[in-house]
């Protein structure tokens, strides 16, 4: 079974070239870290390499997998749906880039 992972939210997609990945899961469950390693950028690097610093997601980034905050999932197995959605947010850039977007979101 292949699962399509869509990297939503533009921050890292623009910066590092992560777009959409098809991941062969074969019914397995992955830890969040394993999953992030499977998501590859156009230059071959993995999302894990971009985000994980010292074994943890850098506090600069907020990562959501199917709506769940990765920070709460780290080290845990996660089951993917047929089409997963990964949202990566550069928290600092998002907030700095405007209160506008934040306000539009009603956060």
């Amino acid at each position: 079974m292949r699962v399509k992972i869509t990297l939503a939210s533009g921050d890292l997609r623009r910066s590092f070239g992560f777009f959409t990945n098809d991941i062969e899961v074969n019914g397995a469950e992955y830890t969040v870290e394993e999953l992030l390693r499977k998501i590859r950028a156009v230059n071959g690097g993995s999302l894990a390499e971009a985000l994980i610093d010292g074994g943890r997601i850098s506090p600069r980034y907020a990562v959501f997998i199917d709506g769940m905050n990765v920070e709460a999932l780290q080290g845990l197995k996660t089951r993917l749906k047929d089409e997963g959605r990964v949202v990566v947010m550069d928290v600092i850039a998002r907030i700095a880039g405007g209160w506008c977007e934040w306000q539009d979101l009603g956060c």
């Binding site: 506090p59 600069r60 600092i92 907030i95």
Partner: peptide, 24 residues
């Protein structure tokens, strides 16, 4: 080790929100 700073939702002033400076 400090790994993250977030707004405190229990504080009625900022209601869990925190600006870029606070996050950084």
């Amino acid at each position: 080790v400090l790994v993250k700073i977030e707004g405190n939702p229990d504080d009625p002033d900022n209601m869990g929100k925190l600006c870029a400076k606070g996050n950084a």
